[in-house]
């Protein structure tokens, strides 16, 4: 298991691994928004939490199809399935590796990018916390979607269509927590619901993803 995690992390940061793709996308989106909607501080700070959350979500989506597709193409997935590792564990490690290489950099970068969007001062810790709680759900749900579409040629479009509706609850509660934090309102309720979505996804989806992977490998 640990070997698989190290291998995935090493593959991500080496040439052609796609590390930084999501981060660059996130940066581009947040930098372009002020050009698109105008530089008024009041308008920007009102939409900043939502834009940052949408940017993080789309950046996450960008790298999902790599989770299993590359391993499927070169036969690694077949061989992993015959190894004495439980498929559920393989899926969970893959999701963890995706979160470390995609989700975690987004969480770390979001407060810095908040400056571009004049995010109000009290919003920074809540934006950081809501992304920290919410992005694991994005990775796990995305891993499930990647497992569903693994055998399909150019399954990226189908993957996005399948995964986006599942991302909506995370987006609603995450952006709401960040927005309330920025406005100085109590944030407990959306944060708890966001944590609930993440916990549920973490607990259930590795099993679902392993089940569909078994079918996809046939």
């Amino acid at each position: 298991m640990r070997a698989l995690l190290w291998r995935d992390l090493a593959l991500a940061v080496r040439a052609g691994g796609g590390f930084g793709l999501g981060l660059a996308f996130f940066l581009i989106v947040t930098v372009l928004v002020p050009f698109g909607v105008g530089p008024e501080t009041a308008r920007l700070s009102a939409i900043a939490p939502g834009i940052l959350w949408i940017g993080a979500l789309l950046a996450c989506l960008l790298s999902l199809d790599r989770i299993f597709a590359l391993d499927f193409e070169d036969g690694t997935l077949d061989l992993l399935a015959t190894a004495p590792l439980p498929l559920e564990g393989i899926v969970a490690v893959k999701a963890l590796a995706h979160w470390i290489t995609t989700g975690l950099p987004l969480v770390a970068a979001a407060p810095a990018l908040g400056i571009f969007l004049s995010l109000p001062g009290p919003g920074y810790p809540w934006l950081f916390l809501s992304l920290l709680i919410g992005t694991p759900a994005l990775s796990v749900i995305g891993t499930f979607g990647a497992a569903l579409t693994v055998g399909l040629k150019r399954g990226g479009l189908l993957l996005s269509l399948l995964v986006l509706p599942l991302y909506v609850p995370t987006l609603i509660f995450g952006a709401e927590a960040a927005r309330r934090g920025a406005a100085g309102l109590p944030v407990e309720t959306p944060l708890l619901l966001l944590a609930g979505v993440s916990a549920g996804a973490l607990a259930l989806l590795p099993f679902a993803a392993a089940a569909v992977l078994r079918v996809s490998l046939r």
Binding site: R7, D74, G75, L79, T82
Partner: peptide
């Protein structure tokens, strides 16, 4: 069973020993 199919399951950006 140890299975070896048509694909070798190698990662291009890892060394032989890795």
């Amino acid at each position: 069973v140890a299975y070896a199919g048509h694909a070798d399951g190698l990662k291009a950006s890892l060394s032989v020993s890795e």
